[in-house]
Every structure is written in C-alpha cells, then in structure tokens.
Design a protein around this nucleic acid. Structure first.
Lengths: 243, 243
DNA sequence: CATGTCAATATGTCCGACATATTTTCAATC
DNA sequence: GATTGAAAATATGTCGGACATATTGACATG
C-alpha cells in the first residue's frame, strides 16, 4: 500500500503513529484525540502536517472530526479493514496467532471460489499472467525472499482473473497473510518447494477450465499454507520460551 | 461512509468530482492530473482544500503523487474497492446490471459462510442485535425506506457475529447492494414482506447453532434478493424503452 | 561520449490569519 | 424556577503566501 514513497515522510510517519495508538487501544472508540495544535507540538511539526495525517486516517474510516467538538475515534465497524495500511497497523498490535487465523478464515472463504470463477471466466491472458508468476516462483527455488513476490502475484492474478473487481480488493488480505508467513518462516527454506506443486495443480485445473477441481486444489494449497504458519508460530513460541 | 457531514464541504465535493473523472475514465491509469494550483483555480478554492481532497483519494489508492512529477492515477488493482465511498463513485458510472451481478457474486461467496461462522461463533448478544434488527424490519412492514436501514443492520450483524473483523469490512459491499436494490425497487412494496420470512429462517438457524442450515438459508435469501434486483432491472429497462 | 552541475518545477511543509460550526454560558423572559 | 435565546468560547475548516525538497532535464565540462 503506502510504500514509504519519498517526500511526505511526516504524513505517513505521524499517521502511522496515531493509527497504532488507536489500533492498540490507547485511544478507544469514541475517545477524542488531542487538538491539532497539541499534536503539532507533540510531533514537532506544523498543523498542516498533522491535518494531512489525520485526513489519511479519516479516509480509512478510523476517525471523524467535527468543528468545535474535535476529532474522535470511530467504532471498529466503520474501519476499512481490507485496507493494506490498516492491515499492517493492526498486525503487530495483537496476538499473531489470532491474526493469522482470521486471515486464513477469510482466505478459505474467498480464494477457492475465486479459483472457480477464474477457471470459468478468466481470459487466457489472465491465466498466462498467473503462469508467468508461477515460473518465477519456480525459478526462485529455495530463495524465500525471491519467492514471496511472484507468490503474491500468483494469488492476485487469480483474483483478477475472476473479472470481479471487488474480489481483487481481497488482494490486501492475501498480501498481509503472505507477508506474515514470509516474516515468520525465514528458517524454513524448503517450504516453498512443497507449496510449488500445489500451485501448479491449481493452475492446471484452471487451464483445463475445471472450476470444481480448481476450487479443491486451492483448498489443499491453503491447507498447507495454514499448517506451515501454525508450525512456524509453534516454533517461534518454543524459541521464545527458551530465552 | 462519508455521510455529507457538516463542514469540509469542499473536501468531499472536490474529492467526489475528481474521483468521478477517474472512475469514469476521463483520467486513465497513469495519467497525470492537473497541478494543484490549476485545480485550485478550476474549483475556486485554495490549494489547501485541493490537497485535502487529493489526500483522500490517495488514502483510497486512486492516486499517488511525487514531487516534481505530479499526481498520477494508479492502476485499478491498487484501488480499494471495498471502500464505501469508492463503491458509491463507481456505481453510477457503469452498467447497473453488471455492477449488480458483481456485487451479488461476492455476496454469494461471503455471506453464506459468514452465516455459518456466526452460527458457530456468534455470542448471544451478537444474535440479539440481529434479532432486534429483524423486529424493526418486521415493524417497518410495507414502508420500503423504513425497511432498508434495519435490513442492512441485519446483514452487518451477521458479519460482526463471525468474530472476524475482516469479514465485517464486507459490510460495504452489502450496503452498496442493498442501496442499489432500494433505489431500484421503490415501486415494489411487497418485496420486503417476502424477504422477511427468509431472514427469519436465517436467524432461526443461527439461534439453533445450525451452521449448515444457516448457510443454506442465507443462500435462499440471496436467491430471492438477486431475482428481485433482476426483475427491477428488467422493469426499468422496459420503462426506459417506452419513453 | 560520459559525467557532474545547475536551473526549473511540482509537491511537501511551514506559518499566521480568518471563517464556520457547535457547545457552553448566561441573561432575559415567562 | 424553568425555558428560551443571544453571545462568547473553541476546535476544526479554509485561506494565502512563503520556503523546503525531490526529481527532471538541460547544459557545461572532462
């Protein structure tokens, strides 16, 4: 989402910080945040920069401001959780295992059906794009970090292939999940290789326009992904206990 | 989403207008929009207000700006389509039938599974909230406009009941679909009544913690909803031809 | 031809002032 | 004493103009 693009360092830095206070619960639903001038003083920037940052959070549904009353935190229901930035902010703030479970829950609902739709409606050029991503995953071999990017493109490609732009928006969920899994599993270099053949299976079913087969194949892939993450988490917990 | 809340009329008005130029295709992917000073002149506002509007679009992934280069339209893939504002902007810009189909496609994927999860994980208080929404729908009777709000709350309540905050974000899709259906079917006053019993069925299955039953019931409800919308669209097309 | 420097340019940040909406206060009125 | 209504207080919204910063492209230098 907001790759730390040059310039506007203030905006994203401040938005980030305030967002974390909110997602973390230091600022709860209905709470009024400090006045813009006060925030400006705290962060040592002008009111302008504060307003830019707040405007970002406003757009994502975290806060709302009204004249004289101030700026207050909105209920979580109105947060746009499918937003990449918001996913990133929430992530580190809560138990990782639960975060992972929730993400997988959504993936299991959406991705198999997306595969079915992609098998049915995807154009050859859509599938070719997924095929390219697959080959790059293959070429990456054991290099986990080189594997991650085409992996995401593979899954995004399926969503695009559905022809349903709303499903494409789920890419943010997939991205969050993959990124989490990537950051967890640096020490598990053969995981990619096992996943590869399952990716191949998904793609094959889609090429043969086998909607149900694609759905099942994706489910198997998600099974593996999930168990990998669980294993990584267990490993991490074990490591933490040793210290 | 952004109910035209008081103040900041400029921001939302301008963001709206520019967003429509983008969603409509007047400004395509990669295009550079006019400089902020030019936009300021065009809309007769200060550069500050323009920047505030652009910052909103930035947060929703429609545009990106870099110093010296300017502000350019991002590819649709990076748009956050699950955002309520964006849904509203895209809506009127494209064939209504296709928009409706895409929305229903997503609803059919997500809502039945959400029902199953809600039946399994939803707390009694979650279900009670849905029950309240149901009673208000019942009380609304034939009044289509009084029916709409609790209807949305019913479906949102289910998403909340899943305990999965990412699924809650789908509420935007449901809202868009219901709003469309509402604006189409003003002349179909008995539609709510037929839907009511199907809502009841969903709720009953959830109370008895029957995950699969709830899933099936929701599917039947969506069947009705979909056929209602199709009928309304056909009716509307027929009306248009007469003129 | 390659490379490094400098001007040009559009967004990013700052400041200080005033506008506007809303709450709060408080006084006049019944 | 309760109600109403006008005025002060206050936090965000808008304005304008200035300077900072990043990036491009042209130019000059080796």
């Amino acid at each position: 989402m907001s790759e730390e693009r040059t310039g506007q360092q203030h905006t994203s830095r401040i938005a980030n910080e305030i967002a974390r206070r909110i997602t973390q619960g230091k600022l709860g639903e209905g709470d009024i945040l400090p006045k813009e001038v006060e925030l400006a003083a705290e962060f040592n920037v002008s009111r302008t920069s504060i307003r830019e940052a707040l405007s970002l959070l406003k757009a994502k549904g975290l806060i709302e401001s009204r004249q004289k009353l101030g700026t207050r935190v909105l209920p979580r229901v109105s947060w746009n959780m499918l937003d990449g930035d918001l996913l990133e902010w929430t992530w580190s703030q809560r138990p990782v295992a639960e975060f992972a479970n929730r993400l997988n829950e959504v993936r299991r609902i959406v991705e198999p059906e997306a595969c079915a739709l992609c098998a049915k409606n995807g154009t050859d050029s859509d599938l070719a794009a997924i095929e390219r991503a697959y080959h790059e995953m293959d070429a990456a071999g054991g290099d986990v970090s080189a594997f991650a990017e085409p992996d995401l493109r593979f899954h995004r490609g399926i969503l695009i292939g559905t022809g349903n732009e709303f499903l494409v928006a789920f890419g943010a969920i997939v991205e969050a999940a993959l990124r989490m899994s990537f950051e967890l599993s640096t020490k598990n270099p053969d995981a990619p290789r096992r996943a590869l053949s399952l990716h191949r299976a998904v793609l094959d079913r889609m090429w043969s326009r086998d909607a149900d087969g694609a759905r099942q194949a994706m489910l198997r892939l998600l099974d593996l992904t999930e168990s990998n993450i669980m294993a990584d988490l267990a490993q991490r917990d074990a490591d933490n206990k040793k210290e």
